[in-house]
């Protein structure tokens, strides 16, 4: 192997600094008083307002109705992220199972139909989607935020490709062992898919966590606000008039919003890599 030179390290350090820099600055700034930030811009030292700021952001009720805390928003985001990730995985696994293992007519056509919806982003169908959700009376509910976006062409595609790579003999062995379609799915395919599931979980959780447009549209009740919306809410004080926007709180909220997805990535990445390296084929 090539010797690791000082340049390799320099490049990696540079990359890390570029990636981490803004986060660090945001964090440092969040520990200062909003007046200081307003007067002298971004801060590069650790300030003395760490505890009060984060305490306020997490526990103090804010927003228009003064009923929603940062913790509630984090919780909402978590529900959204988990709902997205789990829902999408479950739905796309089932869809892919049907497409790959059940020989119904036009299975391939159905698959490509699903796949082609990848070309249609949410924004294209946002009005009809809104209408449907509204008619179901699901505005201002978790279901309304999650369910309309839960079908995933990407997920279906990934699982389809994976199932196709599972040797047919495994299905046949299971059939001889007395496993019906349901048992085969639960006992064999699902455990075999854990790697795929964790990979998709990472992607889908972050995707759900970062949703902005759809939750904004779906919810008017502040109890359902996600953290991504919360950040914006704080800065909106501008509009209010003579107050100084709580930059420190916005920064703190941004930092808090970043933490869970990072945790998910770190946690599942280990699994993911373990699954990749341990499988024998």
């Amino acid at each position: 192997m090539r010797k690791v030179t000082i340049w390799d390290h320099l490049i990696l350090i540079l990359g890390a600094v570029i990636m981490m820099g803004p986060l660090v600055v945001a964090f440092l700034t969040s520990t200062h008083d909003s007046v200081d930030i307003y007067m002298s811009g971004l801060q590069f030292t650790f300030g003395d307002r760490f505890v009060p700021t984060y305490d306020k952001v997490l526990a103090h009720s804010g927003g228009f109705t003064k009923e929603v805390t940062g913790l509630t928003m984090l919780w909402n985001s978590l529900i959204l992220g988990l709902g997205f990730a789990i829902g999408k995985i479950v739905i796309s696994m089932m869809a892919a199972y049907a497409i790959v293992y059940f020989r119904f007519r036009f299975a391939t056509a159905v698959f490509w139909l699903i796949f082609s919806t990848l070309l249609l982003p949410l924004e294209v169908r946002i009005i009809p989607s809104y209408e449907v959700v509204q008619k179901f009376g699901l505005l201002n509910s978790y279901a309304g935020m999650i369910v309309p976006l839960i079908a995933s062409a990407t997920g279906t595609f990934f699982f389809r490709q994976f199932y196709k790579s599972v040797p047919d003999e495994l299905l046949e062995a299971a059939r001889i062992d007395g496993a019906g379609p349901f048992k085969f799915f639960i006992d064999i395919l699902v455990p075999l898919s854990t790697t795929m599931m964790s990979a998709l979980f990472i992607i889908m959780f972050v995707y759900g966590w970062n949703q902005y447009l759809w939750p904004t549209l779906m919810t008017t009740d502040e109890h359902y606000f996600t953290i991504v919306r919360g950040i914006k809410q704080i800065l909106q004080v501008w509009v209010g008039g003579n107050q100084i926007p709580a930059y420190n709180e916005a920064m703190a909220l941004a930092i808090l919003a970043v933490v869970p997805p990072v945790l998910v990535v770190i946690l599942f990445q280990r699994w993911f890599i373990k699954g990749l390296t341990e499988s024998d084929k």
């Binding site: 040797p167 003999e169 495994l170 046949e172 062995a173 299971a174 059939r175 001889i176 062992d177 007395g178 496993a179 006992d187 064999i188 455990p191 075999l192 499988s279 024998d280």
Partner: peptide, 20 residues
């Protein structure tokens, strides 16, 4: 009859063991 009900056992070329 379903394979499971025929009371036979099969050994496959690639063994088809359940990997997990």
């Amino acid at each position: 009859l379903d394979p499971a009900d025929r009371n036979i056992a099969m050994v496959f070329q690639n063994y088809a063991l359940y990997p997990h």
